[in-house]
Design a protein around this nucleic acid. Structure first.
Length: 570
RNA sequence: GCAGGUGUAAUCUAGCGGUUAGGAUUUUAGCCUUCCAAGCUAAACACCCGGGUUCGAAUCCCGGCACCUGCACCA
């Protein structure tokens, strides 16, 4: 099996189509067809339920276009930019900071002009052909646009991740969650990256779907209440310590041995594994790899990737990062808006401290209009900074020396009931398109039969776009009528069906096998006698006969995994 | 972005200067058919795009686009 076979099936059966195909297509852009869109919705549904109903996260839906400052704050404008140079002669591109590594302690910090100068000064030439190196050009992976027309337009960018929407809305979310930590937020939507070289089908796209969760926590409490429920789950880990190889341990062991840094991170590694297996990722082809220190993103303190083994090799499909306080701190810095959690002490603490008491009666005549600002500055000042009977404070941005006669030093008692802190963030970030593709490739099974290749997509029932095929054994009225009634009944109960009365029964089963439909129900002549129908299992091709009266419940239980097909037979 | 390879129906492919562009699968209509791609009869659908060479181009040349492989790049 290779990716071309899978993509060919995806195209033929309406899962994934190259976008704008009648115009020749655009690399890195793909559309989901009817089967793909349905399957994507199914995976999203499972994920959303796990986070909202399961873990109590709330969902938001923020904009995909943002003003420049958001991405200055997030770091994407700087860190997603590469200073690019190329050889004038052979056009080989280089990253300017890579070329200057040996000539400067921190070349990435240089301005473009300084890089140009340094390249000239030390005489860097092309490593391929010895040619001259061009001037530095900026290449940013974000799509740039204008918000508003003409001269009044502001520079904006399409978001490269959904995460920022959850960070810049922190205060509103915190208030909504009644100012309690921890709380979690999810967002499902598109992100955009102008990739230099999109490849490998839907693995690297220029427009892609993400499911991201941001969990805001107290950095002093990185535990999780439901960890006990999953701590026995086995997990394949590839730590980043030199010499460490892949190992299979329980989450509990991984935490005890310090392989995974904290409990909440370990919990979401396990939670992610459960989710992925539920929607159809093969556990034998799934592992978690810790990021090397050098590949850690600019915002991450620790990061574990869920990797799936695909025909392209091990491929990242989920990143679970401890982003620390990086994002919120940056938005605080750029917006001048405080974003805090509040850690309440068990008992309020009485603190005695010295403060300055401005003598407002003297300040007024001396400082006139500025007196109120001087007073506030004095109240905020630290008495330890008093020197030579005076103190220097900042008033309207300028330092002022205030003599001691304008204030008293007093000891006061203060009740402190807690402290503020910038929350840390745990981020499980899912590449939805990659997860989709992984489910498709892991489901892809070829068998040999007399016709040649026989394809079965062993999709997880929860992901499958069609849940149930419904067939009359023959397209005759006496069979077709009850079959159509069954079909209507299932659809009324939100089971996606496909009714089919054309061609031989074997062909109809085969058609359903190719789009991953887990079960088929067939109405035959015996149905007319005893009101039973057969249920046929995709993976074993076995059939059981069940009473029509319990059919709906039986099928729903099979789809939800409450019963297995093998149990039905007994 | 660089180098190499590939581009014929929804899919797999034959044709390699002159063909009504062939086959298979699929799809559609009908006949037949009592459970795993059965059979019969019809029908539908294609030379990636744009230039050039030539009396004549799916075929040769150039450019573009897409896909594949490697390099580079990349949460």
């Amino acid at each position: 099996m290779n990716s071309a076979d899978v993509l060919s099936l995806c195209k033929r059966r309406g899962f994934i189509w190259p976008a704008y195909e009648i115009y020749g297509g655009i690399a890195g852009l793909y559309d989901y067809g009817p089967m793909g869109a349905a399957m994507k919705n199914n995976i999203v549904h499972v994920w959303r339920k796990a986070y909202t109903l399961g873990e109590g996260f709330v969902e938001i839906d923020a904009d995909t276009i943002g003003p420049e400052i958001v991405f200055k704050a997030s770091g994407h404008l700087d860190k997603f930019s590469d200073a690019l140079v190329s050889c004038v002669k052979c056009k080989t591109p280089y990253r300017a900071d890579h070329l200057l590594k040996e000539h400067h302690p921190n070349p990435a910090s240089l301005s473009h002009g300084d890089m140009d100068d340094l390249i000239q000064k030390v005489g860097v030439v092309c490593m391929e052909c010895g040619g001259e190196i061009s001037k530095v050009e900026d290449f940013n992976l974000m799509f740039k646009t204008m918000i508003g027309p003409g001269a009044i337009g502001r520079t904006g960018y399409l978001r490269p991740e959904t995460a920022q929407g959850m960070f810049y809305n922190f205060n509103s979310l915190h208030r909504h969650m009644r100012e309690k930590l921890p709380f979690g937020v999810i967002q499902i939507g598109r992100g955009y990256r102008n990739e230099i070289s999109p490849r490998q089908g839907v693995i690297r796209l220029r427009e892609f779907n993400m499911m991201e969760a941001e969990l805001f926590i107290d950095p002093k409490d990185k535990t999780w209440p439901r960890f006990d429920a999953i701590k026995q789950d086995q997990i394949r880990l590839v730590p980043n310590e030199p010499g460490d190889t892949e190992l299979s341990v329980t989450l509990e062991e991984a935490l005890k041995k310090g392989i995974i840094a904290n409990e909440v991170l370990a919990y979401f590694v396990g939670f992610t594994q459960r989710f992925l297996v539920t929607v159809g990722v093969d556990p034998e082809r799934l592992r978690f790899r810790q990021h090397l220190k050098t590949e850690m993103a600019h915002y991450a303190a620790d990061c574990w990737d869920a990797e799936a083994l695909l025909s392209f090799g091990w491929t990242e499909i989920v990143g679970i990062a401890d982003r620390g306080c990086w994002d919120l701190s940056r938005h605080i810095e750029f917006s001048n808006v405080e974003m805090n959690g509040f850690r309440r002490y068990d008992e309020p603490v009485e603190v005695e401290k010295e403060v300055l008491k401005p003598k407002y009666g003297m300040l007024g005549p001396q400082f006139k209009a500025k007196s109120s600002a001087v007073g506030k500055a004095l109240e905020a000042a630290d008495p330890k900074l008093i020197e030579d009977g005076g103190i220097t404070v900042q008033v309207d941005g300028a330092p002022m020396i205030i003599e001691a006669k304008y204030f008293d030093v007093a000891r006061v008692k203060e009740k402190v009931s807690g402290e503020k802190f910038v929350p840390h963030v745990i981020e499980p970030s899912h590449g939805l398109d990659r997860i989709m593709y992984t489910c498709l490739e892991h489901a892809y099974t070829e068998k040999e039969d007399k016709e040649g290749k026989y394809l079965v997509m062993r999709l997880a029932p929860l992901s499958a776009p069609i849940k149930l095929g419904i067939f009359p054994l023959m397209g005759k009225d006496e069979l077709a009528k009850p079959a159509m009634e069954l079909d209507a009944e299932f659809r009324a109960n939100e089971v996606a069906t496909s009714y089919d009365d054309s061609g031989s029964i074997g062909r109809r089963y085969a058609r359903m096998d190719e789009v991953g439909t887990p079960y088929c129900v067939t109405v035959d002549y015996q149905t007319l006698e005893d009101d039973t129908v057969t249920i046929r299992d995709r993976d074993s091709t076995a059939q059981v006969r069940v009473k029509r009266s319990i059919l709906l419940k039986t099928v729903v239980d099979l789809l939800n995994g409450k019963r297995s097909f093998a149990d039905l037979k007994g």
